[in-house]
Design a protein around this nucleic acid. Structure first.
Lengths: 107, 107
DNA sequence: TAATTAACTTACTTTATGTAAGCAAGTATA
DNA sequence: TATACTTGCTTACATAAAGTAAGTTAATTA
């Protein structure tokens, strides 16, 4: 009697629901960033950030670009698929600014 | 050099990002449900469901209603604050149906 | 009377995350 | 030239969160 929920929604949630994922994408919506920039801006540990970026690359949401300068520069940015999450994150932001404030415990 | 991210967004994410929370809310958007209904529809363990429902009550997102019948019936439903998350979840659903399919690794 | 259900809780195991140190390659500083 | 520092990681270990399974209470059905 399991799995009555929409499997695509579940898949979307399984991606977004991993700790830090949404904040990483939110940061990258501002433009491409380097590893240490993401790390310090959202406060995620390097260990987990490294893991998440790999996951997001596999999902086709993030791309890792290596610029062959000296020293080498590595930047992470969103693919189209990644950018297409913007409306969803915008709505969460909207809720953060309005709905979140509500105190009403009325049904 | 931490915390450059919008604190309200972070708060919203800290609620939604906990495992199962979004799926619980998604289920309750369909109407009020009993403990075991939520449990079996999304596949969360009772231990964690119990924990999450308490958290969501504290956040003013969910209400627990006790109907004094025999046997007693307990139902969980969304408050206005909880319902106000619908647009955000709708956008995630939209992404699940369109953006998620994209395979393009183009920037 | 025995078995079953709802709504949990408790004890224990497994998985995820955090912390801190280490590493390679290059840069800047004394 | 030696020392320290930076970036982008990885590794090893500690702690927190989630899963699993059994137990509890009160009432119900077979």
């Amino acid at each position: 009697m399991d799995q009555l929920i929409c499997p695509r929604f579940e898949k979307a949630i399984s991606i977004m629901n991993k700790r830090w994922t949404t904040l990483i994408i939110y940061q990258l919506l501002e433009g491409s960033q380097r590893f240490c920039e993401i790390e310090s801006s959202i406060g995620v540990s390097g260990r987990v950030l490294s893991e998440r970026l790999k996951d997001l690359e596999k999902e086709g949401i993030v791309i890792r670009s290596v610029y062959d300068e000296t020293p080498v520069r590595i930047e992470y940015s969103l693919t189209n698929k990644g950018e297409s999450l913007k409306p969803a994150l915008d709505q969460i932001q909207k809720w953060a600014e309005t709905g979140l404030k509500q105190v009403s415990n009325s049904p």
